[in-house]
Structure formats: structure tokens, C-alpha cells
């Protein structure tokens, strides 16, 4: 196994864990498509990184976060839903990104679908640090966000600022997506935030189990996708997605066989 694959596995496992963990909120908030679409917004940032010779992931993160904050603010001002606003902006970001990449098709392909051969020790360490931080911070706001989901009034009456927690949450999503782009690319990274959580929710009757399963499914999807990618020598992104979907299907069958209800 090459060093790049080993480092990619570290990145995949930790980002998969973090994405599964915080993705569980996104699925509860019924924002699954938001997570998916939002990830495409990174593309112009990645392009600027390639054009001006700085780390594209930094550009990707900056674009993700600024867009997330803008969408969050527009949502508060216009009262339009996240879905509507993300729907209106992500295709524009995708278009700008593709234009910025111009005829640099290799870089565009890497940005869209990921490239694990570029993952080294530094990327692995950064991914571990960010993933641990994301999980720790998500843990801090998790209960508050869930209470806000159950009843906004209950949350506010307990002194919880829903807007502030949502903003922090969007920052964490941006960070995780930016790191995950290395493995799956912008087109498919949203998957890591959505599908593991959807599978976990199908067979969970309580939050602890939901969070645990969602994180584990995220990590397994990423790791098995990367292993297959290195074995078959093809792009990791699609294989990560296929692994995750396989987990989802297995979970649906288990639920169907056991008539699991919650």
C-alpha cells in the first residue's frame, strides 16, 4: 500500500466520522440537499487556488464559508428557506468555477472528483485535527440544535440562540466539506454528509445510537471507497459513494426484515 493511500485512509476515516456526525443534524433539519448542493460552492475557491498558486482547499473553504454565511443572512432577512437560497446560488458557483478553471481540465477533474495521490502527511494531520475539532464543537451545540428542531419556542425559552448555533454549524459543515473534497471531490462530497446519516436514522430509536451509527457509516464508506479505488486504480469519489449506498441498502433490508420501528 502506497504512502498516499495510507494518508488518504487516515483522511477518509476521520473526515467520514466527522461528516457522518454533523451530517446527522443536516438530515434532521431536512437540509440533506442543502449539504449536497452547498459543497459545489467550493469550486470557484478551488479554481482561484489553482490559478493563484495557493492551497485550493483554503480557497474552497473560504468560498464555502462566505457563501454559507451569506445564505444564512439572506435566509434571516428574506425568510426564504435554505433550500431555495442554496438552489439559487450553487449552480452559479459551479458555472463560475468551471469558467475559472478554463482549459485546465486535469485540475477541474481533480476538483470535481478528488485525487488521493495528492494527499500527504500534512493533509492527513490537518484532516485529523479538523475532524476532531468539528466533532468536539458539534457535540457542544448538538443538544441546542436538536431542541430548536423539536420546538423553537422551547429552545428560545431556555436562552438558546438558534441563529448563533446555526452559524457555527455552517462553519463546521464548510470545514468538513473542504477537507472531504480531497477524497471525493466537490461533486460527491455532499454525499458523506447525507447518506450515512440517512442510513443511521433508519435504524435508530435514540440520538446516541443515531450519532454513533452515522459516524461509523461515514468512516466505513470513505475507507472502503478509498481501498477499492487504490485496488482498481480509479477515482475514489464514485467508489466512496457506491460503498455508502451499499450500506444504506443493507440497512434498509435489515429494517425491512426485522420490521424495525421507532
Amino acid at each position: 500500500m502506497s504512502e498516499a493511500v495510507l494518508y488518504s485512509l487516515v483522511v477518509g476515516a476521520t473526515v467520514g466520522l466527522a461528516a457522518g456526525y454533523l451530517g446527522s443534524i443536516m438530515v434532521l433539519e431536512k437540509m440533506a440537499l442543502v449539504g449536497d448542493a452547498l459543497s459545489h460552492v467550493a469550486l470557484p475557491g478551488l479554481a482561484l487556488g489553482v490559478l493563484f498558486n495557493f492551497n485550493p482547499l483554503v480557497g474552497g473553504f473560504a468560498f464555502l464559508f462566505v457563501s454559507a454565511v451569506l445564505i444564512w443572512h439572506l435566509g434571516r432577512v428574506t425568510k426564504l428557506s435554505f433550500e431555495t437560497l442554496v438552489g439559487a446560488t450553487f449552480t452559479l458557483a459551479l458555472a463560475i468555477g468551471i469558467l475559472l478553471f478554463g482549459d485546465n481540465l486535469d485540475a477541474l477533474e481533480e476538483a470535481l472528483f478528488g485525487d488521493i495521490t495528492k494527499v500527504g502527511a500534512i493533509e492527513a494531520v490537518v484532516a485529523v485535527i479538523i475532524s476532531v475539532a468539528v466533532i468536539a464543537l458539534t457535540r457542544l451545540i448538538y443538544r441546542k440544535i436538536v431542541l430548536g428542531l423539536i420546538s423553537e419556542e422551547l429552545a428560545i425559552s431556555k436562552g438558546i440562540s438558534i441563529a448563533r448555533n446555526n452559524l457555527l454549524y455552517l462553519l463546521l459543515v464548510s470545514l468538513t466539506v473542504a477537507v472531504g473534497i480531497q477524497i471525493t471531490g466537490t461533486l460527491l462530497v455532499g454525499f458523506l454528509v447525507v447518506t450515512p446519516a440517512a442510513a443511521a436514522k433508519t435504524i435508530s430509536a435514540n440520538m446516541s445510537r443515531y450519532l454513533l451509527l452515522s459516524s461509523i457509516f461515514g468512516a466505513i464508506s470513505a475507507v472502503s471507497g478509498i481501498l477499492m479505488s487504490s485496488y482498481f486504480n480509479i477515482l475514489p469519489g464514485p467508489l466512496v459513494v457506491i460503498s455508502g449506498i451499499a450500506i444504506f441498502v443493507i440497512v434498509i433490508i435489515i429494517r425491512w426484515r426485522k420490521k424495525f420501528t421507532y
Partner: peptide, 8 residues
């Protein structure tokens, strides 16, 4: 309360 969709 909206709890129908929250595994809690």
C-alpha cells in the same frame, strides 16, 4: 412539538 422525525 415536532418530534415525529427526530430519533430521540
Amino acid at each position: 412539538l415536532s418530534v415525529r422525525d427526530v430519533p430521540i
